[in-house]
Protein backbone atom coordinates (compact mmCIF):
# COMPACT_ATOMS: atom_id res chain seq x y z
CA UNK A 1 0.00 0.00 0.00
CA UNK A 2 2.87 2.32 0.86
CA UNK A 3 4.54 1.61 -2.49
CA UNK A 4 1.26 2.24 -4.34
CA UNK A 5 0.93 5.59 -2.53
CA UNK A 6 4.51 6.49 -3.46
CA UNK A 7 3.93 5.68 -7.13
CA UNK A 8 0.64 7.59 -7.21
CA UNK A 9 2.32 10.61 -5.62
CA UNK A 10 5.14 10.43 -8.16
CA UNK A 11 2.77 9.98 -11.08
CA UNK A 12 0.57 12.89 -10.08
CA UNK A 13 3.58 15.11 -9.40
CA UNK A 14 4.86 14.52 -12.94
CA UNK A 15 1.33 14.88 -14.35
CA UNK A 16 1.01 18.32 -12.75
CA UNK A 17 4.51 19.32 -13.88
CA UNK A 18 3.53 18.33 -17.45
CA UNK A 19 1.37 21.48 -17.52
CA UNK A 20 4.62 23.40 -17.97
CA UNK A 21 4.73 21.96 -21.50
CA UNK A 22 1.02 22.36 -22.31
CA UNK A 23 -2.42 21.24 -21.20
CA UNK A 24 -2.68 17.45 -21.71
CA UNK A 25 -4.79 14.46 -20.58
CA UNK A 26 -2.39 13.60 -17.74
CA UNK A 27 -2.75 17.09 -16.30
CA UNK A 28 -6.54 16.88 -16.80
CA UNK A 29 -6.61 13.58 -14.87
CA UNK A 30 -4.49 14.94 -12.02
CA UNK A 31 -6.57 18.14 -11.90
CA UNK A 32 -9.87 16.26 -11.62
CA UNK A 33 -8.58 13.73 -9.09
CA UNK A 34 -7.14 16.58 -7.01
CA UNK A 35 -10.37 18.60 -7.12
CA UNK A 36 -12.56 15.57 -6.38
CA UNK A 37 -10.40 14.40 -3.50
CA UNK A 38 -10.30 17.84 -1.95
CA UNK A 39 -14.10 18.21 -2.20
CA UNK A 40 -14.59 14.84 -0.48
CA UNK A 41 -11.99 15.67 2.14
CA UNK A 42 -13.69 19.01 2.84
CA UNK A 43 -17.00 17.26 3.54
CA UNK A 44 -15.37 15.03 6.14
CA UNK A 45 -13.35 17.90 7.58
CA UNK A 46 -16.36 20.20 7.97
CA UNK A 47 -18.47 17.42 9.48
CA UNK A 48 -15.87 16.63 12.14
CA UNK A 49 -14.31 20.03 12.83
CA UNK A 50 -17.43 22.21 12.53
CA UNK A 51 -20.67 20.26 12.89
CA UNK A 52 -19.41 17.89 15.57
CA UNK A 53 -16.70 19.92 17.36
CA UNK A 54 -18.30 23.34 17.24
CA UNK A 55 -22.00 22.53 17.35
CA UNK A 56 -23.06 19.06 18.51
CA UNK A 57 -20.38 18.48 21.16
CA UNK A 58 -20.66 21.92 22.82
CA UNK A 59 -24.48 21.69 22.87
CA UNK A 60 -24.25 18.27 24.56
CA UNK A 61 -21.72 19.57 27.06
CA UNK A 62 -23.76 22.66 27.94
CA UNK A 63 -26.89 20.53 28.23
CA UNK A 64 -25.16 18.17 30.67
CA UNK A 65 -23.93 21.15 32.73
CA UNK A 66 -27.34 22.84 32.67
CA UNK A 67 -29.17 19.73 33.82
CA UNK A 68 -26.57 19.27 36.56
CA UNK A 69 -27.60 22.66 37.96
CA UNK A 70 -24.28 24.42 37.27
CA UNK A 71 -25.40 27.98 36.30
CA UNK A 72 -28.24 26.66 34.12
CA UNK A 73 -29.10 30.12 32.73
CA UNK A 74 -25.61 30.56 31.37
CA UNK A 75 -25.55 27.15 29.72
CA UNK A 76 -29.05 27.51 28.27
CA UNK A 77 -28.02 30.85 26.78
CA UNK A 78 -24.93 29.24 25.23
CA UNK A 79 -27.11 26.50 23.76
CA UNK A 80 -29.40 29.19 22.36
CA UNK A 81 -26.49 30.93 20.62
CA UNK A 82 -25.24 27.64 19.18
CA UNK A 83 -28.70 26.67 17.93
CA UNK A 84 -29.07 30.13 16.37
CA UNK A 85 -25.79 29.64 14.49
CA UNK A 86 -26.83 26.12 13.47
CA UNK A 87 -30.21 27.39 12.26
CA UNK A 88 -28.46 30.02 10.12
CA UNK A 89 -26.43 27.21 8.55
CA UNK A 90 -29.54 25.13 7.90
CA UNK A 91 -31.20 28.13 6.21
CA UNK A 92 -28.46 28.00 3.55
CA UNK A 93 -30.03 24.76 2.31
CA UNK A 94 -33.09 26.71 1.17
CA UNK A 95 -31.03 27.51 -1.93
CA UNK A 96 -32.04 24.09 -3.22
CA UNK A 97 -35.68 25.21 -3.36
CA UNK A 98 -36.16 28.08 -5.85
CA UNK A 99 -39.31 29.42 -4.14
CA UNK A 100 -37.61 29.59 -0.74
CA UNK A 101 -34.09 30.45 -1.87
CA UNK A 102 -34.54 34.09 -0.76
CA UNK A 103 -34.34 32.88 2.85
CA UNK A 104 -30.67 32.01 2.35
CA UNK A 105 -29.94 35.74 2.05
CA UNK A 106 -30.49 36.13 5.79
CA UNK A 107 -27.51 34.01 6.88
CA UNK A 108 -25.45 35.62 4.12
CA UNK A 109 -26.39 39.10 5.29
CA UNK A 110 -25.67 38.10 8.89
CA UNK A 111 -22.17 36.88 8.01
CA UNK A 112 -21.35 39.88 5.82
CA UNK A 113 -22.60 42.42 8.35
CA UNK A 114 -20.87 40.66 11.19
CA UNK A 115 -17.63 40.53 9.22
CA UNK A 116 -17.63 44.24 8.51
CA UNK A 117 -18.33 45.12 12.14
CA UNK A 118 -15.81 42.75 13.67
CA UNK A 119 -13.08 43.68 11.20
CA UNK A 120 -13.58 47.41 11.73
CA UNK A 121 -12.73 47.17 15.42
CA UNK A 122 -10.06 44.48 15.12
CA UNK A 123 -8.25 46.37 12.34
CA UNK A 124 -8.42 49.64 14.29
CA UNK A 125 -7.23 48.04 17.48
CA UNK A 126 -4.78 45.55 16.02
CA UNK A 127 -3.26 47.44 13.13
CA UNK A 128 -4.19 51.04 12.53
CA UNK A 129 -3.69 52.56 15.98
CA UNK A 130 -0.44 50.66 16.75
CA UNK A 131 0.93 51.61 13.34
CA UNK A 132 0.17 55.29 13.90
CA UNK A 133 1.97 55.11 17.25
CA UNK A 134 4.84 53.19 15.61
CA UNK A 135 5.35 56.05 13.19
CA UNK A 136 5.96 58.57 15.99
CA UNK A 137 9.73 58.35 15.54
CA UNK A 138 12.71 60.49 16.35
CA UNK A 139 13.75 62.05 13.07
CA UNK A 140 17.31 62.63 14.27
CA UNK A 141 17.90 58.95 13.50
CA UNK A 142 18.40 58.67 9.68
CA UNK A 143 16.71 55.22 9.55
CA UNK A 144 13.60 56.70 11.11
CA UNK A 145 13.44 59.20 8.25
CA UNK A 146 12.79 56.27 5.89
CA UNK A 147 9.92 55.05 8.08
CA UNK A 148 8.46 58.54 8.42
CA UNK A 149 8.59 59.52 4.75
CA UNK A 150 7.67 56.00 3.61
CA UNK A 151 4.45 55.98 5.65
CA UNK A 152 3.47 59.55 4.79
CA UNK A 153 4.08 59.31 1.04
CA UNK A 154 2.40 55.89 0.81
CA UNK A 155 -0.64 57.22 2.65
CA UNK A 156 -0.77 60.11 0.21
CA UNK A 157 -0.61 57.70 -2.74
CA UNK A 158 -3.78 56.05 -1.40
CA UNK A 159 -5.61 59.36 -1.09
CA UNK A 160 -8.40 59.29 -3.66
CA UNK A 161 -10.14 62.63 -3.14
CA UNK A 162 -7.74 64.78 -5.16
CA UNK A 163 -6.10 64.36 -8.53
CA UNK A 164 -2.44 63.39 -8.18
CA UNK A 165 -0.91 66.51 -9.69
CA UNK A 166 1.56 69.12 -8.44
CA UNK A 167 3.01 68.63 -4.96
CA UNK A 168 0.48 65.89 -4.12
CA UNK A 169 1.37 64.05 -7.33
CA UNK A 170 5.10 64.33 -6.63
CA UNK A 171 4.65 63.02 -3.09
CA UNK A 172 2.47 60.15 -4.34
CA UNK A 173 5.17 59.23 -6.87
CA UNK A 174 7.68 58.98 -4.02
CA UNK A 175 5.12 56.80 -2.24
CA UNK A 176 4.87 54.44 -5.20
CA UNK A 177 8.67 54.08 -5.14
CA UNK A 178 8.51 53.02 -1.50
CA UNK A 179 5.74 50.56 -2.35
CA UNK A 180 7.68 49.09 -5.28
CA UNK A 181 10.84 48.66 -3.19
CA UNK A 182 8.79 46.79 -0.58
CA UNK A 183 7.24 44.63 -3.31
CA UNK A 184 10.67 43.85 -4.74
CA UNK A 185 11.80 42.59 -1.33
CA UNK A 186 8.61 40.49 -1.00
CA UNK A 187 9.10 39.11 -4.50
CA UNK A 188 12.66 37.96 -3.82
CA UNK A 189 11.73 36.46 -0.47
CA UNK A 190 8.80 34.50 -1.89
CA UNK A 191 10.76 33.26 -4.92
CA UNK A 192 13.37 31.86 -2.54
CA UNK A 193 10.60 30.07 -0.64
CA UNK A 194 9.17 28.61 -3.86
CA UNK A 195 12.58 27.37 -4.99
CA UNK A 196 12.97 25.50 -1.73
CA UNK A 197 9.55 23.89 -2.34
CA UNK A 198 10.69 22.84 -5.83
CA UNK A 199 13.88 21.38 -4.40
CA UNK A 200 11.80 19.39 -1.91
CA UNK A 201 9.59 17.97 -4.66
CA UNK A 202 12.56 17.09 -6.91
CA UNK A 203 14.15 15.35 -3.93
CA UNK A 204 10.95 13.37 -3.48
CA UNK A 205 11.05 12.23 -7.11
CA UNK A 206 14.76 11.39 -7.23
CA UNK A 207 15.31 10.06 -3.70
CA UNK A 208 12.02 8.74 -2.29
CA UNK A 209 10.29 7.58 -5.45
CA UNK A 210 12.84 6.65 -8.12
CA UNK A 211 15.70 6.11 -5.64
CA UNK A 212 18.18 7.45 -8.21
CA UNK A 213 20.09 9.32 -5.52
CA UNK A 214 20.95 8.06 -2.08
CA UNK A 215 20.17 10.56 0.69
CA UNK A 216 23.37 12.08 2.03
Amino acid sequence: MEILGLWLAGFFTLSLFSFLYKDNPFYGLAEHVFAGLSAGYEVGLVYHSVILQQLVDPISQHWVNATAGDHPGFHIMKIGFLLFAGALGVLMFTRFFPKASWISRYPLAFVMGNTAGIYLMSELHGRLIPQIAGTFVNLLNPLNLIIFFGVLTTLIYFYFSKEHTGLLGGTARVGIWFIMIAFGAHFGYTVMGRISLLIGQVQFILIDWLKLIKPG
Binding site: F19, A35, L37
Partner: peptide, 20 residues
Amino acid sequence: CYVAGEQFAYTATVNGYMMR
Protein backbone atom coordinates in the same frame (compact mmCIF):
# COMPACT_ATOMS: atom_id res chain seq x y z
CA CYS B 1 -19.55 27.29 -9.57
CA TYR B 2 -17.82 25.63 -6.67
CA VAL B 3 -14.51 24.16 -7.78
CA ALA B 4 -12.59 22.71 -4.86
CA GLY B 5 -11.97 23.50 -1.22
CA GLU B 6 -8.23 22.87 -1.31
CA GLN B 7 -6.12 25.82 -2.38
CA PHE B 8 -4.03 24.12 -5.05
CA ALA B 9 -6.80 21.82 -6.28
CA TYR B 10 -8.74 25.02 -6.94
CA THR B 11 -5.73 26.56 -8.67
CA ALA B 12 -5.10 23.47 -10.82
CA THR B 13 -8.72 23.45 -11.98
CA VAL B 14 -8.81 27.16 -12.78
CA ASN B 15 -5.48 26.91 -14.59
CA GLY B 16 -6.85 24.03 -16.67
CA TYR B 17 -9.91 26.13 -17.49
CA MET B 18 -7.69 29.06 -18.55
CA MET B 19 -5.71 26.91 -20.98
CA ARG B 20 -8.72 25.04 -22.39
